[in-house]
Nucleic acid binder design. Structure first.
Length: 252
DNA sequence: GTTGAGCGTT
């Protein structure tokens, strides 16, 4: 039944593509299929997903075999609340490869030059920056693609749609982040030992300062804080400085 | 845990 896209785009000839916007990020193709299939023969449903996270991007493509049925679906399902969100259904304006399209129907095989140069929305979200900051693209993408091409969006057929998402994604996050941070810390620390001028780390003793301040706000003497801030790394050896910043009592 | 305009793949 819902084996859309098992081997890439099926027969996209003489089909009419609808763009379904504003669907929930948890709405899957199998959620949309019964809705749209009521109004005609649905030959394919495709939900673009993020290649890295595998999460839905919030819209879908539904291809009908006949235009009148597609039009009926637009008429009936546009504005329908699905999974708590009011979806928008309209005919697709672009083909999968930017083919010329008309009323959702592809009327030209190859676009002679337009390619994918159509202006795609430069949407940048907090996640994108987050991922880019971690620079995990190369390592985890191969694994992500592996999983992606294995299951695509058929996880739901196994009756654990939500659980599968959480358990397949959580370890990835934790492993990647944990490993990265640990490695980073080790690297910075070894650099501090190796290098003779590591001023960045000595300038942030807030880690040990913040928790104490909350318990005793205003009780701390400015003299102590000033002495902590005026630590000159050059006058002390790196080992002593590191030890000093970690120890809460510099006076000994 | 986190988002919300938009046009797509073994």
């Amino acid at each position: 039944m819902s084996h859309f896209g098992r081997s890439g785009p099926p027969d996209i000839a003489d089909t009419y593509s609808l763009l379904v916007l504003n669907i929930s990020f948890r709405t899957s193709a199998d959620d949309l299929f019964p809705l749209f299939d009521k109004y005609g023969k649905v030959v394919d449903i495709f939900i673009p997903r993020d290649r890295r996270t595998g999460e839905s991007r919030g819209f879908a493509f539904v291809r009908y075999k006949y235009q009148d049925e597609a039009q009926k679906a637009v008429d009936k399902l546009d504005g329908r609340v699905v999974d708590g969100r009011e979806i928008a259904v309209q005919f697709a304006k672009y083909g999968p490869n930017a083919e010329r399209i008309q009323k959702g129907r592809i009327i030209e095989k190859v676009p002679r030059g337009r390619g994918r140069s159509r202006s795609r929305s430069p949407r940048r979200r907090y996640r994108d920056d987050h991922y880019r900051d971690r620079d995990y693209r190369r390592r985890s993408r191969s694994r992500s693609l592996d999983r992606y091409e294995r299951d695509r969006y058929y996880e739901r057929e196994r009756d654990y749609r939500y659980k599968s998402r959480s358990y397949s994604r959580s370890p990835d996050y934790d492993r990647g982040r944990g490993r990265r941070r640990y490695d980073d810390e080790l690297k910075s620390r070894s650099q501090s030992f190796d290098s003779a001028s590591p001023p960045q780390r000595s300038l942030s003793p807030r880690k040990s300062l913040s928790p104490r301040r909350t318990s005793s706000s205003g009780n701390e003497s400015p003299k102590r804080r000033s002495s902590r801030c005026s630590i000159t790394p050059q006058s002390k050896s790196p080992r002593n400085r590191a030890n000093d910043s970690r120890s809460p009592s510099p006076d000994h």
